[in-house]
């Protein structure tokens, strides 16, 4: 008996790749900036809404996809300004923007659900070249993920990237070294939400619709991917972490596909997401405890030998 069919597995891999763009965005705020940013749940559908609206109005799907990245920058900018200039706590800033964006997204779409049936998308552009639909999705996923990882690794190796990392790591120190941490937080949130929104745009094209409710639970999906990835695949460098996050996102989709194939309903998904994340958050603690026990054992063993 196989756990999941090959088709389902490959499908989960491509979905994981597309969602990993969101996960990398979450990684930037949650890990690099040490900022729990809930803007995600608004910027993800924002990207989808803008992307779908533009495509329906005849914009080239690549331009529309890029536009969803740009609009995400704006969402991040607003959260950043609320937090740094108006001194609203980070978590609350994100909630405010996320909530406000719900209305904005409905305004953009004009209704709660915007189908993209028979519209050209970046995926159909690839299938038009004679590639099968599932391969096209995989290709789009791989190409975008490779480009984004490359750009992020380059960015984090610059003077600016160092300052951004230090802002999350030790703001007092980098401030004493002449960096305006407010600006760093704002730019970090912008890049993060740009990616999340971009992910929303691509997912909308993959799903064939944009929906006002598609943001719900995305922060949990993003965090789960980051944490599963880091726990299982390591986080010794930025490059390693980003690869881990992508693998984490894929693994998350495989877990979801597995539970769906084994009797649970799609409506159970959000609960499953939360449970998966709770387990992932708990894993490092278990790992540490096991490690501690082991070393005590070793110490005792050593003492017995002596």
């Amino acid at each position: 008996m196989e756990l999941i069919s090959l088709g389902t597995f490959l499908n989960a891999v491509s979905q994981g790749l597309l969602w990993s763009i969101l996960a990398m965005g979450v990684y930037i705020t949650y890990r690099i900036l040490d900022f729990a940013d809930l803007t995600t749940e608004g910027s993800f559908p924002l990207g989808a809404a803008v992307d779908a609206m533009l495509i329906i109005n005849g914009t080239n799907p690549f331009v529309a996809t890029f536009a969803s990245f740009i609009i995400g920058l704006v969402a991040g900018l607003v959260t950043g300004l609320l937090n740094t200039k108006l001194k609203i706590p980070g978590l609350l800033s994100g909630i405010l923007v996320m909530t406000g964006l719900y209305s904005v997204n409905l305004r953009i779409m004009g209704k709660a659900n915007l189908p993209l049936l028979k519209q050209p998308t970046i995926i159909t552009t690839v299938t038009d070249m004679g590639i099968s639909n599932s391969n096209a999705i995989m290709l789009v996923g791989i190409v975008s993920v490779v480009i984004i990882i490359l750009l992020l690794v380059l960015l984090f190796a610059t003077e600016f990237g160092f300052a951004l990392r230090a802002t999350g790591n030790n703001p007092k120190m980098i401030s004493a070294l002449g960096v305006n941490t407010d600006i760093m937080i704002i730019i970090g949130l912008m890049i993060s939400n740009g990616l999340i929104s971009l992910s929303g745009g691509i997912i909308a094209q993959y799903n064939g619709y944009a929906d006002a409710g598609m943001g719900t639970g995305t922060i949990v999906i993003g965090l789960a991917s980051v944490i599963i990835g880091e726990v299982i695949f390591g986080k010794t460098s930025i490059f390693r972490s980003l690869i881990s996050v992508v693998l984490g996102s894929i693994l998350y989709r495989i877990i979801i596909a597995f539970v769906l194939e084994n009797g649970l309903q799609p409506t159970d998904l959000k609960l499953i997401s939360s449970i998966v994340l709770a387990i992932c958050l708990f894993l490092p603690v278990v790992k540490e405890k096991m490690f501690a026990k082991k070393s005590i054992k070793n110490m005792n063993g050593g003492a017995n030998n002596a």
Binding site: T158, E159, F160, L177
Partner: peptide, 16 residues
Amino acid sequence: AMAYRRGKHRTLRKGI
């Protein structure tokens, strides 16, 4: 490298 750039503008040049 960050200390070496104290008080300078952080650019997109190599961090180190």
